[in-house]
């Protein structure tokens, strides 16, 4: 019998190892799997490469993981956001690496990683500092930049509902990077608010087919990151 449900977030992240590459869903706080990230802080894996659009805010969620010096390198498109202080401080001290990637290129590199495509050509970034040193090629008179796929050991994703096969639906703009990250990681860990019976999700509206998901954990009432930041909370509490 297939049942991807695990009972706790700590069980979900127990296999994460030092040096792992981890994709973390979310665009700002929308879709950020904050309880899974906190479980990863507790779990202790270090020397991580994190692929995520931003670098977290305050000292909770991804920012907490960075504050605890678990992250060697960030691959992201926008490392500065409101209330983002942890990453900038470490970056200025030279204690964390940054690979800056245009947002759409980041998405496509992840999509390609999940789709078995090692590299692709994109018009994005040609003629800018972010294309320096990269292979280019002309198609129909337009110059394109070659970009490599990104694959990960783990993906941490937040969705709204899952069944025991791991089929997922998301919530509004919290979907963002979730579906593509699920496809690009060897082990995808998903926190959901609702665990439903097989068949409860109409097959026509499944967003992530369960084949891309390894473990599901229920977090009924996920924390609201901006509230925690406003209250100056710091993880671990």
């Amino acid at each position: 019998m297939i049942n991807k449900l695990v009972s706790t977030v700590s069980e979900a992240v127990s296999g994460v190892f030092d040096g792992a590459t981890i994709m973390i869903g979310g665009f700002g706080e929308a879709g950020s799997p904050i309880e899974l990230i906190h479980a990863l802080v507790d779990q202790g894996a270090k020397d991580l490469t994190i692929v995520s659009n931003n670098t977290g805010s305050g000292e909770v969620g991804l920012a907490a993981l960075i504050a605890h010096k678990r992250v060697r390198k960030m691959i992201c498109s926008f490392p500065r956001t409101a209330n983002s202080t942890v990453f900038p401080e470490l970056y200025k001290k030279g204690e964390i690496e940054l690979e800056l990637v245009p947002q759409g290129t980041l998405a496509e590199r992840i999509r390609a990683g999940g789709a078995g495509i090692p590299a692709f050509y994109t018009p994005t970034s040609f003629g800018t500092p972010l294309a320096e040193g990269k292979e280019t090629r002309i198609f129909d008179g337009v110059t394109y930049v070659m970009e490599n796929a990104i694959k990960a050991d783990f993906a941490l994703v937040k969705a709204r509902s899952a069944d025991r096969y791991g089929n997922l639906i998301y919530n509004k703009t919290a979907r963002n990077f979730g579906p593509i990250m699920c496809t690009a990681a060897k082990t995808t860990l998903v926190q959901v608010q609702h665990f439903v019976d097989l068949g409860d999700i109409d097959p026509e509206i499944v967003v992530t087919p369960g084949i891309f998901v390894q473990h599901v954990v229920v977090v009924e009432n996920p924390a609201d990151e901006s509230k925690l930041v406003a209250e100056n909370r710091r993880y671990p509490w």
Binding site: S77, F78, K92, L98, V101, P102, Q103, S125, L130
Partner: peptide, 8 residues
């Protein structure tokens, strides 16, 4: 700290 988002 460089940040580009979706502009490019």
């Amino acid at each position: 700290i460089p940040a580009v988002g979706g502009a490019m």
